[in-house]
Design a protein around this nucleic acid. Structure first.
Lengths: 196, 196
DNA sequence: CCTTTTCGGATACGACTGTATTCTAAAGGG
DNA sequence: CCCTTTAGAATACAGTCGTATCCGAAAAGG
């Protein structure tokens, strides 16, 4: 009897519109109406799928986390694990519009989480999971002899994440983001290559 | 004839109120009226000193940059330069309300600059200056034999800034920020200690 | 075909936004 | 002492905000 729509897909479309706005104009440009326009629907439709603006933001934040994790999944873990990690990090840098959008979104959310405890817990969980995945990967790389093993993998993971986060941030406002790539690469290599 | 006030000081007071709001409630909580309340004046008074909200933000951003540079100035450059740098970095981490506020403010501004070209140039200039100062310091540390000299000081500066930026970011939403300090310290040391 | 259910557009509301304008009170130079 | 200039409070205005409500249209099962 009812009109049937793929509800989950519709929610993803609308949240995607939000992410595009954040990437292009910043979080403060997000409103129910602006998201509706970007998604090509009415404001009423947006309200149908997200009862509150907060819900909408949470869902969008979830989506970006999934993007991030998916990138790890698609990484085939063969060859030199350090080289692979470096390729992954470079790919995560904001060098094109797509990556740039993701970094802006995560940055915006982190900035907001810093002053909103309920968001902070969510962001923290995501960060911790990422650190865990990275640590596991590095541990494997240590066993393979591709990464130094005189320091715990979890510490190395923290350092690598901080390093890539910092460089990504810097690139966001840099005139020539790609110019920072060699610096990122040597930093990570210096940090991770096995000691002799 | 006129009623005389210290105009520059008044501007600093009002901008300080803005910074407190950003640190406590985030950028989106900043409005002419909320700043006025925080500063203990009327909205009209705020308008007297800053004709537009944009002016107000720019001035506040300037102030935070000055804070950052002042910290470098107060650093007496004696003893082991690597140890000194580490102490500086640790002091810059968001471990108390004051530092936390600064990091939040800079984060918020960076996030905004990513989607506002006029701000981006300003932020970028500040970053470049900071990188320059850091590089000069590291160069001196290289001459003193306290820091490895097989890599250009400018690259090392980029890495150190990225590292501390990334750790500061992580600490913002971390449940136990101080727990990340050892990781920061070993990372920087690993990156900078002279090779044998 | 018709009925029932949901989709999603339209509208309404009160609160808040940035900015412009108007006002009163105060203070220092003549 | 008064007059002029400024400080800064108060008010006004046109938008936009999030949310609630109401409406017609479309689609699937009987």
């Amino acid at each position: 009897m009812p009109k049937i729509v793929d509800r989950a897909e519709r929610r993803r479309e609308i949240a995607g519109a939000l992410l595009r706005i954040v990437a292009r104009e910043g979080v403060e440009a997000v409103s129910v109406r602006s998201v509706a326009v970007e998604a090509g629907v009415s404001a009423g439709a947006v309200q149908k799928y997200f009862s509150t603006k907060e819900d909408l933001f949470r869902f969008a934040l979830d989506m970006t986390s999934e993007f991030l994790e998916q990138r790890w999944q698609t990484l085939d873990q063969s060859g030199n694990l350090l080289d692979l990690l470096l390729r992954l990090l470079v790919e995560a840098m904001p060098l094109d519009e797509q990556r740039r959008a993701e970094v802006i979104v995560i940055n915006a959310f982190t900035a907001r989480a810093a002053v909103r405890p309920s968001w902070a817990e969510f962001i923290r969980t995501g960060y911790d999971e990422l650190a865990e995945i990275t640590a596991q990967y590095l541990s494997k790389a240590q066993s393979a002899g591709h990464v130094r093993d005189d320091l715990p993998a979890s510490d190395l993971a923290d350092a690598v994440l901080a390093l890539s986060d910092g460089f990504a941030n810097r690139m966001l406002t840099s005139a020539d983001p790609a110019a920072l790539l060699p610096s990122l690469e040597t930093s990570v290599r210096t940090l991770l290559t096995p000691r002799i």
